[in-house]
C-alpha cells in the first residue's frame, strides 16, 4: 500500500478505527437479527396471497415466495437465524480456540503436542464434509449445527491465536510480569490477550464469514436449518424455481448473503492493510 494513510472526514462524521468499523458493521447485523422480526408485517409461515412469486408491490414490499408467503417477513426471520447461528458457533469456536491457543503456550510441551495433533486431525477433514458427516450422525437440530460448526472452526482459531500468543509471550513485558510474580491467569487476561486484540478480531471476523458460507451451503443442500425455521440458504433453496421468472424471492436472499459476507470481508480487508 502507499505508505501514507490519509483519512477524510465525510459529512463531519467521526473517523472510525478499523476495529470500530468491523464491530459497527457486525453490530448492525446483530441488531437486525434480534430486532428485525419484530417489524415483520406477517408471520413467517402465513400464506398471504394466492399469487406465488408475486413481484414487489405496496401490499408486500418484497413480493411473495413459492407458496405465496410474504418474502420480506421471511427474509427478516432468515437473517435472524443465519446471523445468530453463525454468531453462536463463531463464539464457540473462537473462545475454545483462543483459550486453548493461549493456554498451551504456558503449559507443558506434551499438552501442546496432544492439542496440536488433535487440531491437525480436525483440519484434515474438509469443513463441508465434516459437517455432512456429523449431521448424518447427530441430525440437523440447531444445537447440533452450532456445535458442529463450532468444532470445525476451532483449529483455525487455535492456530492463529497460538502463533500470536507465542510471539507476545517472548516479549519483555511478559518476563517482567512473571518476575513481578503475577499468576498465569493475570498474565493471559491482562497482558497477552489485550495485545493480540487487533489481529484476533480480523481472525474472528473471517471465521464468522466461513460459518455463514458453510451454513448457507448446508441449508442450500437441504441439510442445514430445516423448515418451518428458515435461514438465508434455505430461502434460496425453496425459491430456486423462481429463478426462471427472475423472481425477487430467489434474488433478494442471495443479495443479502452477499451483502453480509462481502461487506464484512471488505471491512476486514481494510483492517489488514496498512
Amino acid at each position: 500500500m502507499s505508505g501514507t494513510t490519509t483519512r477524510y472526514r465525510v459529512l463531519g462524521l467521526p473517523v472510525l478505527t478499523p476495529a470500530q468499523r468491523v464491530m459497527g458493521l457486525f453490530g448492525f447485523w446483530l441488531v437486525l437479527a434480534v430486532c428485525g422480526p419484530f417489524f415483520a408485517p406477517y408471520a413467517p409461515g402465513q400464506i398471504i396471497d394466492t399469487e406465488v412469486f408475486a413481484p414487489l408491490s405496496h401490499r408486500h414490499w418484497l413480493g411473495t415466495d413459492y407458496l405465496g408467503r410474504d418474502l420480506g417477513s421471511r427474509l427478516l426471520y432468515a437473517v435472524r437465524y443465519t446471523v445468530l447461528i453463525c454468531t453462536l458457533s463463531t463464539a464457540f469456536s473462537c473462545s475454545c480456540g483462543i483459550l486453548l491457543g493461549i493456554a498451551t503456550t504456558a503449559m507443558p510441551a506434551w499438552v501442546e503436542q496432544v492439542a496440536g495433533r488433535l487440531m491437525d486431525g480436525i483440519l484434515s477433514i474438509p469443513s463441508l464434509l465434516c459437517a455432512l458427516l456429523v449431521i448424518a450422525a447427530f441430525g440437523d437440530s440447531l444445537l447440533a449445527l452450532i456445535l458442529t460448526m463450532g468444532v470445525i472452526y476451532t483449529p483455525g482459531a487455535y492456530r492463529t491465536s497460538r502463533a500470536l500468543a507465542l510471539r507476545i509471550a517472548r516479549m519483555d513485558y511478559i518476563t517482567v510480569a512473571m518476575a513481578r510474580g503475577e499468576g498465569a491467569f493475570f498474565i493471559i487476561w491482562k497482558e497477552i490477550l489485550p495485545n493480540m486484540r487487533g489481529p484476533l478480531l480480523a481472525d474472528v471476523g473471517l471465521r464468522f464469514i466461513y460459518a455463514v458460507l458453510l451454513l448457507s451451503n448446508l441449508s442450500f443442500l437441504g441439510l442445514g436449518v430445516q423448515p418451518p425455521l428458515v435461514d438465508l440458504g434455505s430461502l434460496v433453496r425453496e425459491n430456486v424455481l423462481g429463478l426462471v421468472y427472475g423472481s425477487a424471492a430467489v434474488i433478494l436472499p442471495t443479495v443479502v448473503i452477499g451483502a453480509l459476507t462481502v461487506g464484512i470481508n471488505l471491512v476486514l480487508d481494510g483492517t489488514s492493510r496498512r
Binding site: 455463514v212 448457507s216 440458504g233 434460496v236 429463478l243 442471495t254 459476507t261 462481502v262 470481508n265 471488505l266
Partner: peptide
C-alpha cells in the same frame, strides 16, 4: 474477494 466471500451455490445459480 467477491467470489471468495459468497457461497458456491450463489455463483452457480447466478450463472445458470
Amino acid at each position: 474477494l467477491g467470489i471468495v466471500s459468497v457461497p458456491a451455490f450463489l455463483i452457480a445459480t447466478v450463472s445458470v
